[in-house]
Amino acid sequence: MGKFLLRRMLWLIPVILVVSTITFVLMHAAPGGPWDRDLSARQVDPATQKMLNTYYGLDKPLWRQFTAYLVGDVDSEGKFDCGLICGDLGPSYRQRGLTIQQILFMPPEEKSVIYSRFGYSMRLGIYSLLFAIIIGIPAGVISALKQNTMVDYVSLFIVTIGISVPNFVMAIFLIIIFASTLHMVSIVPRSWDEISVWVLPAVILGFGTMARTARLTRASMLETMRQDYIRTARSKGLSERVVIIRHMIKNSLIPVVTILGPALAGLVTGSFIIETMFGFPGMGRAYVTAIGQRDYSMIMGTTLIYAVLVALANVSVDVVYVFLDPRIRLD
């Protein structure tokens, strides 16, 4: 197990290298730069731009900028300034005086880390996942137990919608219904301290995952129900309730539980549209803003954090399997 984890962690190095290379190339291939303002605003004058470029090292050749980001570079006073390998994501080009770590992980004032941008996105992801589990798993189980009945068809219908409708389309519909027409929630809440304002974005974000969880649970249940050991369980005189709970659900949920890690990573990294729509103070909205502003180091930093999250989530699948399925050993 330890060896396995170590090997998987070492895999993060090439992943980070590839992701950062691609991001760097795409980012610089896009027109514009961090000092451009939109046309209506006052432009930064050329002398200032030149100064800023020198200060941030943007006047150096691209390959040098890339190695400076990854490894580090000597600054004007001849001091070595370590880059990504020291865990330094660099300064933001647009939020003066803040490093990327501070923007993403530092909570305002004296609050706890869950009030940082990263913390907000994590919480939104966790709430969405909870919604997906609490609705998706029972829906899948009931669907399978009542296969080919009305209950099953209704659930399949909702699942199909959840899988095929993108969440921003769903968001618009739900905002029109619950905010504009029914006035039950405000579209952009003034404060995120109240738990009720999280419901709408969490449900919208989690809807697709809920649908996929329900579908996977149903398929897994149907598969389990046909197994020989279910017949064995019945032949022992167990009640239907015990057969379902102890022998069917437990076995069916193994594949479902193992995907929860990647599902959470998907929700946390896939929330930028929803965050932007709801003016959510999370990592996703900051990411979108950074892309618009060509805040190069912010784009790089956030992309890499997303990549690491997804990679760790995938490792979690194998680890969780070991705990749930006695037949599986890692080494």
Partner: peptide, 27 residues
């Protein structure tokens, strides 16, 4: 259903063909 349940496994028991698939793998 309850009556037959009390007979299954206590008065009439079954042994199945494939001992691999007839046991629950995770219990």
């Amino acid at each position: 259903d309850d009556e037959i349940r009390h007979i299954r496994g206590s008065q009439i028991s079954m042994v199945f063909q494939d001992p691999m698939t007839s046991f629950n793998p995770v219990l």
